[in-house]
Design a protein around this nucleic acid. Structure first.
Length: 565
RNA sequence: CGGGGUGUAGCUCAGCCUGGCAGAGCGCUACGUUCGGGACGUAGAGGCCACAGGUUCAAAUCCUGUCACCCCGACCA
C-alpha cells in the first residue's frame, strides 16, 4: 500500500477527550474516528488490525476444535422472553419494532439464539460434545460507554458456546476454550491473568475472567502474592481477621450522642471496630432487607445478591428507611421486626458487639447473635479488600486494576432447559445439554494491545497484529536509484507475503519518521540516497530502535527473521 | 442514573470576567525554495461560536432551558 493513496490522517495532538493511552493513540494514529458515545468508525489501517485479531481468534478457536457459525444480530423479542432475560437485561437491551409492530432486540449476546440453533441440530449424545463460535457485532445500551474502545455500545465479540452430555465432559470443553484463550492473548501481545469470577444468579459453576492488568482498568481484582490466588472483587474470598474472644456479657444500653459511623462510634466507646456490628439497609427485588456485618468489614452486594438469588440489589432510599422505622446510625437487628435479616458470618461469630439501639443516640453494648437477635440468613457476604488475608494461605491480598478481556463460564443446563436443547442419551432418555460459554472482546484486544505496547512516540505493534509487517520510508523518491530500489523492495517483500506500507508522500523526512513511529509497524525500512550509498536500505526495529544497513538481496530473509516467520 | 468537567475552524486552544468587525498555532489548497526526525516564504479556503428561548440599540460573551461529549461511581467483552 502506498501512503499517498491511503485514507489515513494522523494527528499531531490527540483530541482532548481521550485519556487512556490506547484511546489517544488510536485517535492520533487515525485508526478510529468517533461517531457517538460508544460508537467508532474504523479507518483502513485500524480495520486491518481488527482483521488480524479476528484471524488469530479463528485460527485458535478452530485449532481447539470449535466450529464457526454465524447467527443473526437481530432477534425477535420472543427469544428473550423465552429465557426470561428480556427482564434481566433490562434497559441494556436495544429494542426496536418492525413495520408490523413486532418486537425485536439487537443481540447483546447469543446464548438464546445459539441454543435455538443447537436445539434443532443436536438430537443424540452422538452429536455431542460440540463447540460453536462466531465473531459477531453485539449491541448493548451501556450505562456509560467509555475509554475509547474499552466499553462500546456496538462492539465485536467472539462468542463461543459448548454443548456437552454432562459436567465432566464440559470440563474438557471449558479447558479447551481456556487454553485457546491463553494462546489468543499471547499472540495478540496482551498479557492476561485468569481470575476467578462470580458466576451470577444464572446458577453456573466455574467462571473465570481473563484480566489485562493496568492502572487504568475499570475492574478491581485481588491477587495473592503468596499462593497465586486471583479473583475479581465480587468473587474474592478471604479470611476475616479473628473476632475478639470473650465470654458473653449482659446487654447494656449506653448513651452515644451524635455517634453515627462505625469509626466515630468505635473511637467514642474506645473499642476496636471489630467489636461493633454494622447495619446496612437494602431494597432487594423491591423488598426491604436488613444486613448485619462486623464493623470492620463491608458488604459485597454481588455476594448478597447471589445468596438471596435476587436480581436487583440497591441501597434503601431514605423514605423507605423512615417508613420502616429504621434509625440510621443507631440501627441493629436487636428487636427488629418486619424485614428479612441477612448476616455475614462475622457478625454471628463475634461476641459482645456494640450495636444500634434503634433509638437515636443510643447503642447497646454486648449484643450477641442467638441471644439478642436472630438472622434469617447467615452467609459470606463480606467484600474482600486489599490487605485482607488470603483464604488459602493467609498472605495479605493485593488489589490491582484491570480490564476484562475474556470470560469463560460453565453455564450448566439453564439455557438448554429454557430453550429446549435436549438429546437422547445411551439409554434413550431425554437430557438437557450441559452448556458453557466463552467470550472475547475484539476491540478490547486492539485497545489492550496498544495499552501494553507503546512508548512516547506511538504504538509498538506486536508482530502478529500489526496492520502491516513493514513500513517503508522513502526519501528523495524523485531520484531514479531510490525509485528503482523502492519498487524492487516492494515486489520482493510482496512475493514473500509480507505486507508493506510505503510512505511515498511528498513530505519531509521528519514527518515520515514521526508517522512511522506513531503507526508502529515492527520493522521500518528507509530507502534513501544515503542508505543506498552505504550498500542497502536502513532497517530499524520499532521496539528496540536498533538500526542496521541491509543489502536488498538479503532484506527478505532479515525481515522474516525479525518477524519470526 | 448520581457526582464533576467541557462545548468557538479538521485538531489543540485563546477570546467570555468587563457585551461592540470571530482569532492564533497546527492541519488543508496553490506556487516556489527545502529534503534523514513534525522545514520556510507568498497567496488562499475553511465558522449557525452545540441548540432553543430571553435580556439588550447590540450577545461567542449576561440569564434560563435543552442537547452532546469526556471523567469518577453502580453494569459488562
Amino acid at each position: 500500500m502506498r501512503m499517498s493513496k491511503l485514507l489515513l490522517k494522523t494527528l499531531r495532538e490527540a483530541p482532548s477527550e481521550a485519556e487512556l493511552a490506547s484511546h489517544r493513540l488510536l485517535l492520533r494514529a487515525g485508526l478510529v474516528s468517533p461517531l457517538a458515545a460508544g460508537l467508532y468508525c474504523f479507518t483502513p489501517v485500524g480495520w486491518r488490525v481488527i482483521q488480524k485479531i479476528e484471524g488469530i481468534i479463528r485460527e485458535e478457536m478452530d485449532r481447539s476444535g470449535a466450529q464457526e457459525v454465524h447467527l443473526p444480530a437481530l432477534h425477535p423479542i420472543e427469544v428473550w422472553e423465552q429465557s426470561g432475560r428480556d427482564q434481566a437485561m433490562g434497559s441494556t437491551l436495544f429494542r426496536l419494532v418492525d413495520r408490523k409492530e413486532r418486537g425485536f432486540a439487537l443481540g447483546p449476546t447469543h446464548e438464546e439464539v445459539v441454543s435455538i440453533l443447537a436445539s434443532r441440530t443436536i438430537q443424540s449424545y452422538r452429536d455431542l460434545p460440540v463447540t460453536l463460535y462466531q465473531i459477531q457485532t453485539k449491541f448493548r445500551d451501556e450505562q456509560r460507554p467509555r475509554g475509547g474502545l474499552i466499553r462500546l455500545r456496538e462492539f465485536t465479540m467472539k462468542d463461543a458456546y459448548s454443548f456437552d452430555t454432562g459436567w465432566e465432559t464440559l470440563d474438557a470443553s471449558y479447558d479447551a476454550a481456556f487454553n485457546a484463550y491463553h494462546r489468543i492473548f499471547a499472540r495478540a501481545g496482551v498479557p492476561v491473568v485468569p481470575v476467578a469470577a462470580d458466576s451470577g444468579a444464572i446458577g453456573g459453576k466455574d467462571s473465570q475472567e481473563f484480566i489485562f492488568l493496568t492502572e487504568d482498568g475499570e475492574d478491581s481484582v485481588l491477587i495473592c502474592p503468596g499462593c497465586g490466588y486471583a479473583a475479581n472483587a465480587e468473587k474474592a474470598s478471604f479470611t476475616r481477621s479473628p473476632a475478639i474472644p470473650a465470654e458473653p456479657l449482659p446487654m447494656e444500653k449506653v448513651h452515644t450522642p451524635g455517634q453515627k459511623t462505625i469509626a466515630d462510634l468505635a473511637a467514642f466507646l474506645r473499642v476496636d471496630p471489630r467489636q461493633t456490628n454494622k447495619a446496612v439497609f437494602y431494597r432487594i427485588d423491591g423488598k426491604p432487607v436488613f444486613v448485619s456485618i462486623r464493623g470492620d468489614l463491608d458488604v459485597n452486594e454481588v455476594k448478597l445478591k447471589n445468596v438471596l438469588k435476587a436480581t436487583d440489589v440497591e441501597p434503601m432510599d431514605d423514605a423507605t428507611v423512615r417508613a420502616a422505622g429504621l434509625v440510621a446510625g443507631s440501627a441493629s437487628a436487636v428487636g427488629l421486626k418486619g424485614m428479612r435479616i441477612v448476616a455475614d458470618t462475622s457478625a454471628v461469630e463475634a461476641v459482645n458487639l456494640v450495636a444500634g439501639a434503634n433509638e437515636p443516640d443510643y447503642h447497646y453494648l454486648n449484643t450477641n447473635h442467638g441471644r439478642d437477635w436472630q438472622a434469617d440468613v447467615v452467609a459470606d457476604i463480606a467484600l474482600a479488600r486489599g490487605g485482607d488475608a488470603c483464604a488459602t494461605c493467609g498472605t495479605p491480598l493485593e488489589v490491582r486494576r484491570g480490564i476484562e478481556m475474556g470470560h469463560v463460564f460453565k453455564l450448566g443446563t439453564m439455557y438448554s432447559e429454557k430453550m429446549g436443547v435436549y438429546y437422547l442419551d445411551e439409554n434413550g432418555e431425554r437430557q438437557p445439554a450441559v452448556m458453557g460459554c466463552y467470550g472475547i472482546g475484539v476491540e478490547r484486544i486492539l485497545a489492550a494491545a496498544i495499552e501494553a505496547n507503546h512508548d512516547d512516540n506511538g504504538i509498538i505493534w506486536p508482530t502478529e497484529v500489526a496492520p502491516y509487517d513493514v513500513h517503508v520510508v522513502v526519501l528523495n523518491l524523485e531520484q531514479d536509484a531510490v525509485a528503482a530500489a523502492t519498487g524492487q523492495l516492494e515486489a520482493a517483500l510482496g512475493d514473500a507475503r509480507l505486507s508493506v506500507l510505503v510512505d511515498d508522500r511528498a513530505d519531509s523526512a521528519g514527518i515520515k519518521f514521526k508517522d512511522a513511529d506513531l503507526l508502529g509497524m515492527p520493522v521500518r525500512l528507509t530507502v534513501s540516497p544515503r542508505a543506498l550509498e552505504k550498500g542497502g536500505v536502513e532497517l530499524r526495529q520499532r521496539r528496540t530502535g536498533e538500526t542496521e544497513i541491509v543489502p536488498l538481496e538479503r532484506l527478505v530473509e532479515r525481515v522474516r527473521a525479525l518477524l519470526g516467520r
